[in-house]
């Protein structure tokens, strides 16, 4: 990537993400976070490190960002880690259906044993996590009533959920599955490719999916979908920075941590309101419904523990994370 540098020479890194372009103040919070990160890094390095942001999947397909980073075509991304589960199956622990139940629990991952294991696996596979970002997901339905419990599933309808494990669970619930990045949901819903989409509340709003749905299940009460979408940099690219620059990267990443957590939680409520304002039928998931989803997710958890190297251990560590 642009990481090669001689003493005192300025470098430009490429950061790609799939959300609409934002400013440091306004937009999808993941895109805002990228803008703020770029701005602060440039300030603190005195212009020695510039980060050029390619929003809206304008550079690489969202699911290809991991490979692009490890091959050096790209340097950084705000990346839904499970998109790379084809290459690194362990990453699916970060999008396991009905495993994480609340933002509080998600935020406990970073300091827990599972957090260190994820960082370790990521670095072994060529990426370094700078800021932890978690998103709660909603369920959007193109036509019909909201999907609250597995009983509401319209058999054969086509669903998308980011990541194979949640999709396996939805398949058990009776859906047809087509896989696509969240940036393609709007178009797919509009053209009828997709009947049901599960994605982060933030994506539901920044892609204006309320324009093409009739019903929405908001994650403000419960959700079976929590996805980890950290700000990452390629380890090789990171190692090519000077020690001072590396320190700046880590510090700026840590400074933005609180913003990432708070903005994600706020988005759930704000997005729910946007759906209501757009005249969409909005529902929430009660504890009983959540338990039903968790029940049909069990075989998927078991598959993961059995099929993936070290899956059993990851699963156990993840289940130890305190809920509050």
């Amino acid at each position: 990537g642009g990481g090669d540098q001689e003493e005192g020479q300025a470098v430009t890194l490429r950061l790609s993400h799939q959300w609409p372009q934002a400013t440091t103040e306004e937009g999808d919070f993941r895109a805002v976070l990228a803008e703020r990160f770029a701005q602060r890094v440039e300030e603190r390095t005195g212009g020695q490190v510039k980060i050029r942001i390619y929003p809206n999947a304008s550079l690489v397909e969202p699911t290809e960002q991991y490979k692009a980073i490890t091959q050096g075509a790209l340097d950084m991304s705000v990346f839904p880690l499970d998109y790379a589960s084809g290459e690194v199956p362990q990453f699916s622990i970060t999008l396991m259906p009905a495993l994480v139940q609340s933002h509080a629990q998600a935020q406990n991952w970073k300091e827990a044993e599972i957090g260190r294991r994820i960082e370790q696996i990521a670095e072994e596979n060529g990426i370094k996590i700078l800021t932890w970002i978690w998103n709660a997901g909603g369920i959007g339905v193109r036509q019909g009533d909201p999907v609250v419990s597995p009983e509401d599933v319209d058999r054969g309808a086509v669903a998308r959920a980011a990541g194979p494990r949640v999709e396996q669970m939805l398949r058990r619930a009776g859906y047809s599955i087509t896989s696509m990045p969240s940036s393609e949901i709007y178009n797919a819903m509009q053209t009828g490719v997709l009947d049901v989409a599960v994605t982060s509340a933030s994506s539901f709003c920044s892609y204006r999916i309320y324009e093409v749905t009739e019903a929405y299940t908001s994650p403000t009460e419960n959700t079976f979908w929590f996805m980890f979408e950290p700000l990452i940099i390629g380890t090789e690219q990171f190692n090519q920075l000077t020690p001072e620059q590396q320190e700046i990267f880590e510090e700026v990443g840590a400074e933005l941590q609180q913003f990432a957590y708070e903005a994600s939680e706020q988005d759930d409520a704000q997005c729910e309101q946007q759906f209501r304002d757009a005249g969409v039928t909005v529902a929430t998931m009660d504890d009983a419904a959540f338990e039903q989803w968790r029940e049909i997710s069990q075989p998927v958890w078991e598959d993961f523990s059995r099929e993936v190297e070290g899956g059993q251990e990851l699963m156990e560590l993840a289940r130890k994370v305190p809920a509050e």
Binding site: A157, V158, S176, S179
Partner: peptide, 17 residues
């Protein structure tokens, strides 16, 4: 075949890919 399956309320998973 996939269109037919879906119309009959069965799920599809491998056809598209």
């Amino acid at each position: 075949y996939a269109v037919l399956l879906r119309a009959l309320g069965f799920s599809t998973v491998w056809q598209t890919e």
